[in-house]
Every structure is written in C-alpha cells, then in structure tokens.
C-alpha cells in the first residue's frame, strides 16, 4: 500500500484556540479511513485544511506527493479531492440535475464553458447515471431545496462523483440520516471504494465507522492520537480516555445519543 494523502505537522489556530496542534496522518491509497474523536478535536478543521478552505499556520498536505496546501478549494477539487459538508451544501434553487452539472463545469476551458449549454457531451447522461447510483434519479427535475436532508446528502455525494475524484472526504455522512438510508450509504461507500476511490470519513456513528473502515484515526485536542485497525481502536484505553476524560467531556454515549436524536 502506498500513501495517497499525507498530512504533516498541521497547525491552525482561531484566535486563542488551537484547533489543530501538529496534526499528522497518512491515508493509504484504496483505504476507507475513519476519523473519529470528541467534538472540538479538530476533525472538521482538518477537512477544511485538506480541501483548501482554510490555510494552515504551519505544516503541509501532500496528495500523491504533491503539496496542495494553500492552493484554494477549486484547485484541490480539480486535483481530485471531493468533500461533503457536515451540514450539506447543495444549490437549493437549482434543479437536482443542474446541481450535478455544476460539478462538471471545471472540466472545460472557461471561455468555451460560457458558450456551451450545460449537460452536453454526455454530462447529462453521466449525471443521471450517478443519480441513479445513489437512488434519486427520479427527483432529477426537482428543485434541490425540496429534497429531504438525507436526499441532499446523497445528492452531495453524487455531484462530487461527477468529477471522478480519487479521494472522497465525507464529513458525517450518516449524521441525521435514517437507519435504512445509513445502511444504503455504507453499501455505496464500499462500492465506491472497491471501484478504486480512497475515502476519508468523519463520523460519530461508531457502528457505521467500525463497519466500513479499514483504518481509523482517533483525533484528540488537534492531534492524531493513534491510527489502527477498528478492533484495536475499539479496545485501546487511550480512546476511551479521550472521549470520557480531558477538557472535552462529551462521552461516547452522549455522542451516540446526539447522533440518534438528530436523525429524522
């Protein structure tokens, strides 16, 4: 296995708060890699740094050996990292299909893109195929704002796939999604993984994480505490300590309750 995504010594502060404090981790090619940790441990900030939404104060991120820190979110996406957001972000006043087509725009030269009509050259067909893959093809002509929360998550995943990224960063894909859909989602993620995608997933639903991930990194106070296979992480005393002890005293159980309570 080779390293696809290397994070080394990332530091990021917001005012007096150190969100990331020398965070380093390696995601291997073809892996479903889980990222867990108590609230405030820096998981989402790390995602923001990885995808160019935040510039780190120190440290660097490499994708396949190339440094991608500080190049901005658009370029990171072009280089093959697609990410979903904890609170889904779809274009609510565009149709589901148009949402899909937006993610394909970067593949064209800017001036030509101004003149062509969206969806040409097989893009529309590809969009419909991917919507079918996540199971919302029948909603293609609907305004995205009319979708349920879970459907929006599926749409967000589907439109990322329009660009065929090598790496998918999923920020709480199962949060607020009903149990049936969670299982479907897990299947889709596994399917994408066996199709060659490397996946980094932040998730509080432990069953979900343990079920799909080949490696898990536990974040604690802006650092990667440990990285191991799910069984080892489950029994490691430091993990329980991170969740139950320390400054952030939101326990594993509390997390589980919160996740379930948030689902519709």
């Amino acid at each position: 296995m080779t390293a696809l995504l290397e994070v080394s010594g990332i530091e990021k502060s917001f005012g007096g708060i150190r969100a990331l404090n020398g965070c380093s981790l390696t995601v291997e090619r073809g892996m479903i890699h889980g990222l867990i940790g108590p609230n405030g441990s820096g998981k989402t900030t790390l995602f923001n740094v990885l995808t160019g939404y935040e510039n780190p104060d120190a440290g660097e991120v490499r994708l396949d050996g190339v440094v991608i820190t500080g190049i901005g979110p658009g370029k990171v996406f072009r280089l093959g990292i697609g990410r979903t957001f904890q609170l889904t972000r779809v274009f609510i006043r565009l149709s589901v299909l148009d949402n899909m087509l937006i993610a394909a725009q970067h593949q064209h030269k800017w001036l030509r893109s101004a003149l062509r009509s969206p969806g040409q050259g097989g893009e529309r067909a590809k969009a419909m195929e991917l919507l079918d893959f996540v199971g919302i093809a029948r909603l293609a002509e609907l305004e995205a704002g009319a979708l349920s929360y879970g459907q929006r998550k599926l749409l967000e995943l589907a439109y990322l796939l329009m660009a065929d990224p090598d790496v998918l960063l999923l920020d709480e894909p199962a949060g607020g999604v009903n149990p049936t859909l969670i299982n479907q989602l897990a299947d889709k993620i596994k399917e994408l993984n066996s199709a060659g995608k490397t996946i980094l997933v932040v998730e509080h639903n432990m069953e979900f994480v343990m079920g799909i991930c080949g490696r898990i990194t536990v974040m604690h106070q802006g650092r990667a505490l440990l990285t191991d296979v799910p069984a080892a992480v489950r029994s490691d005393p430091r993990v329980l300590d991170a969740y139950l002890g320390g400054a952030e005293d939101e326990g594993l159980e509390a997390e589980a309750v919160r996740t379930e309570g948030g689902s519709k």
């Binding site: 979110p73 370029k75 072009r78 274009f91 006043r93 725009q105």
Partner: peptide
C-alpha cells in the same frame, strides 16, 4: 445561479 445559492460551495466545485 450556483454562486447565488452558495458561492463558497461553487468555488469548491471548481
């Protein structure tokens, strides 16, 4: 229209 709905997201999609 994508910029109108969510400019940062549009930027993140290239």
């Amino acid at each position: 229209l994508a910029i109108r709905d969510d400019e940062e997201r549009a930027k993140g999609l290239g």
